[in-house]
Amino acid sequence: MKVTLESSDGQVFTVDKEVAELSVIIKEMLVIEQANQDHPIPLLNVGAVELAKVIEYCEHHRNDPTIDDDEDYDSRKKPIEMDDWDKQFTIVNKEMMFELILAANSMQVKPLLHLGCRYAADIVKRMSPTEIRDLFQIDDDFTPEEQDKIEWEKQWTKL
């Protein structure tokens, strides 16, 4: 069975039902709108580029067992295990990755959301504060007194 999805900019994608059902939102929508499946499901927050990428991910992971995730702080303890496909998939520019996180969040594609967040965390963790500022194109807006204050909070990072 096929399902059609419509991105925010009006592009229509046709995918298998089980692929689309990786998204919790779409799954719920399909349950509600079982009768009329002729018109495409509108995804108002997701652009065509991101949607294509999300579908690509879902197509590849369609047979994955569903993991029930209790969001635990244990996640930082685990070494990151990504298969080669996921690694290839995450080689996109950083802007795109954050867009994907947003798309995965609004479509509730849990595994992709976690993959994205892990990737984002990975980028951030090996960067210095200056590099992070450059990445997000933001300024250091601390006043000198505040600089003094946070000076000693750097203690976590001092070894």
Binding site: S75, R76, F98, I101, C117, S128, I138, K154, W156
Partner: peptide, 30 residues
């Protein structure tokens, strides 16, 4: 900017992959 678009709960999720010292480093950004 990208950082504005991400809602706090998504930052929390990203932060859940970070160790305290990483978070301390992030707090120095701005």
């Amino acid at each position: 900017l990208v950082i504005d678009k991400l809602p706090p709960e998504l930052w929390d999720l990203i932060f859940s992959y970070l160790y305290p010292s990483h978070l301390a480093k992030l707090s120095q950004v701005n």
